[in-house]
Amino acid sequence: MCDTCGCNVTHGNRHLIEAGGKHAHTEDGGEAVEVLQNLLSENDHQAGHNREHFARHQVLAINLMSSPGSGKTRLLESTIDALQDRYRIGVIEGDLETENDAERIRRKGVQAVQITTGTACHLDAHMIHQALHRIDLDELEILFIENVGNLVCPASFDLGQHLNVTLLSVTEGDDKPAKYPVIFRTADHVLITKSDLLAVLDDFTPAKAEQAVRQLAVEGPVTLISAKTRDGFGPWLEWLGQQLERMTIRQNDTQPAANLR
């Protein structure tokens, strides 16, 4: 949503702008001004700025979201192992405390910046911007942002990412997408992780989880994956490659126009 193109005007609020003028008098003699601005417009503005940074350096930014313990860091470790020879990867880690996750990623030989949020339950665009100053974007093609483990709050804050990947581990229950629709709805790719544990869990049905995701009008792929056995890694890595290619093509398309300006 933004305030320039009018995409924040919906049928629910249209009457406010069409009511005739921005200013009005209230019944008790005060004044009223109509605003119609996103409550998080400051964050969204910063997110737009982050996106410009990514575009300038041709970096694909992917926001990973899930509940704590569903395997985001482990997924990143295995993904880095598989792609390190092909792509230059960097990671921003978000946690309330400790450098543990960034250290795990650095051991793989890639750049990692840890954001410790203290008590904040999500990352926001300002935190990402600060972290970007500690990362050499020229050295990267893909930047993964591992959000704070939380299925609620991260969904409300745009970081400037191009894509959202939401993880659901098989130990969590196949109805999670129905319980936490806001975060799963924004997913460009849903990964059902820890598939190696399915053999011992008889109460998680991947098809049911996928159905719950589709009920949220999500069109992107739903992939069953194990970072441990690498089952399902083929489609996941292929998807990453496609997204990177798509972004490069898009940027090449806009190059002449940008030069003309």
Binding site: N8, N13, A32, L39
Partner: peptide, 25 residues
Amino acid sequence: LVCCECGDFHTRLISGDELLLASVE
């Protein structure tokens, strides 16, 4: 969020994710 008529999940949200400051008095 699927279609109430045909049941398809290819739908577009037209209202429901607003987080707007509407007016200040």
